[in-house]
Amino acid sequence: MKKPRLFNLFLAVNGLLLGLLIMLPILALLLASSPVEIMKLLVDPEVLTATWITLLSSFCALPLMFLLGLPSAYGLARCRGRLRRSLEVLLELPMVMPPVVAGLALLLAFGRRGLFGELFSNLGIRVTFTLGAVVLGIVFIVTPFFVRRCTVLFDGVDKKLEEAALILGATPWQAFLYVVLPVVKRGLFAELIMAVAQSVGLFGAIVMFAGNLPGRTQTLSLAIYSSFESDPQQAFALGTLLLLISLLLLAAVHMLAPRDRRL
């Protein structure tokens, strides 16, 4: 047998350590609660409401993200050079912003005493501390990630396909709808589920901008935070529940995502 080289050994040990770092906390969480406790949660009206708000806000944010993000991603994929780099930096801004700071910023823009607060209150719209705020917070945080990943998808579409469609008489709209979108369809579905998975777990921005009001803006993440102070055991069970939802979504992403044949 060939003697393993030191470098390969180093890589393997390194990978093992990282794997442990990921798996140990997950294992700890799963061990902290029992299936019975989780089943009990599923009949608790407060938990059900929080779950409902979590899923409702995520799925409400989805069409907004899609309508706003998809054309942006496509436009960005067609940009080149300096313009593209500048736009990408703009997109990275919300990505590197600490979530709590993002929540503050949203509050200052759309809150009652914020930049547009007066405008909104004159129109009779209150954003903060409503489900709308949860949705807006999700759109603000998650859309840049969605756009970024969709840009990669669109970059992968051969430009010639679109040109062939144009020469065959398609308008640019038709070329986009009948050629580009169907070609990235699978990847796009995967990205949408990924966006939901990301939305489900948001915390910082939501707690600042939408508040932690049970029955109105309290999502599962916020419920975990609240119950951790009064009843840690319930927090563990809730955490496991949220983790299971995320795992389901992750599994769906991987079933849909186009596989890279080179790997």
């Binding site: 469609a165 020469i167 169907p182 070609v183």
Partner: peptide, 17 residues
């Protein structure tokens, strides 16, 4: 789309879907 020219690209660009 208004030129009424038929073109066959070198790499054909058939629609894979």
């Amino acid at each position: 789309e208004q030129r009424r020219i038929g073109m066959v690209f070198q790499d054909l660009a058939l629609f894979p879907h």
